[in-house]
């Protein structure tokens, strides 16, 4: 926390005194924003990832599978979406996890709720939103992510899409795996947390720098309220679908998206529109979709992407209306 307090004056000093960029100038503001955000975000990220990993070490995919076992549609979707947030999960595991869930009799819609919640509610994005906008926006992000996962999973379940799951999935017999979350010592949990912090920083620092760079550019060069007319609360009705569809092919990391989001909102974009943009970039990822192709037929993949997209658009509208 002490390190936190020196960051702002230091960033001012670097940009205005060291680099000689005048206060209030475009380049001066952009550079100060950059040097303020980089250490702030990296500090916040390290602390929170550590905490989150310790919490997550108590959950596992095996445990989620057991908990969801006898659950029906509806309640099951809610539980699956919640477990999707806390269960440690990398998008590479989407396929084996899908088979494990479906094979143990968990309904397809409930499985989808889990698979949607896990990437949409990203822990890094949550940390960054909390650090930049406070707990209200962070809470809103979790609530909207849950809503998208529950609604999209429920709808996908209703559509009876089982026939579009590749044949071999139903024939596979899944062996009861060992539960890694059991019997870990605190030392092991802390060790995992330290490793997660290291891995996250190594993997994300480029995204963070680029994201903050783009954010800083917007901060310094885009005039205030320039975006209000297009992405603002009273902007045209098509602004939410437009930004969501534009965001689908973009694949970035949540860590890179949050600074961009902050800059967009600062320039007059409505928060709902901006959150929808971020969820679309982070939640629907091309690599994960390609991997799911191994177990799902194209029709189901298309429906999956379509339903999630529509759900994100609706959430964007809802928050623009509420806030």
């Amino acid at each position: 926390m002490a390190a936190y307090n020196v960051v702002e004056p230091l960033s001012r000093w670097i940009s205005h005194n060291l680099l000689g960029l005048p206060r209030g100038s475009r380049s001066g503001e952009a550079v100060a924003f950059f040097f303020y955000d980089v250490p702030k975000i990296l500090l916040l990220l390290s602390g929170m990832i550590f905490l989150i990993t310790v919490v997550r070490s108590f959950f596992s995919a095996e445990r989620a599978r057991r908990l969801l076992g006898g659950k029906r549609v509806g309640l099951g979707n809610g539980l699956a979406a919640t477990l999707g947030i806390v269960t440690p999960f990398c998008s590479c595991s989407a396929v084996p996890l899908f088979i494990g869930f479906v094979e143990s009799g968990i309904p397809l819609g409930v499985t989808f709720s889990f698979l949607i919640a896990a990437p949409v509610i990203n822990e890094v994005a949550l940390v960054l939103l909390f650090g930049m906008f406070g707990w209200r926006v962070a809470g809103l992000y979790v609530a909207s992510g849950l809503a998208v996962a529950i609604a999209a999973g429920w709808l996908l379940g209703k559509l009876r899409l089982e026939r579009y799951v590749e044949e071999f999935v139903w024939r596979t017999s899944f062996r009861e795996g060992t539960d890694e979350a059991r019997g870990l010592s605190w030392e092991e949990r802390f060790g995992q947390a330290r490793q997660a912090v290291r891995e996250t920083l190594v993997k994300l620092w480029v995204y963070v720098l680029v994201g903050i760079g783009v954010g800083a550019g917007i901060h310094g060069y885009v005039p205030a309220d320039a975006l209000a007319a297009y992405m603002g609360k009273d902007g045209p009705w098509w602004s939410v679908p437009l930004v969501v569809v534009a965001a689908l092919p973009l694949y970035s990391n949540a860590a890179g998206m949050a600074p961009v989001l902050q800059a967009l909102v600062e320039k007059g974009a409505a928060l709902g529109t901006a959150l929808a943009f971020m969820m679309a970039v982070v939640g629907v990822s091309l690599p994960e979709t390609i991997m799911l192709r191994r177990v799902l037929r194209p029709q189901l993949i298309a429906t999956f992407v379509g339903v999630v997209t529509v759900a994100i658009i609706l959430i964007g509208y809802l928050f623009n209306a509420l806030l």
């Binding site: 995919a61 599978r65 996890l97 062996r175 890694e180 490793q195």
Partner: peptide, 29 residues
């Protein structure tokens, strides 16, 4: 994925010794 399912692996990367899963969902040291 068939092999992963047969071994009960839901989280990758995983390591199995002679068909028994010893690590799942993380990179071991």
């Amino acid at each position: 994925v068939e092999r992963m399912a047969a071994l009960g692996v839901m989280r990758t990367p995983a390591i199995a010794f002679d068909g028994k899963v010893v690590v799942s969902g993380r990179i071991p040291k």
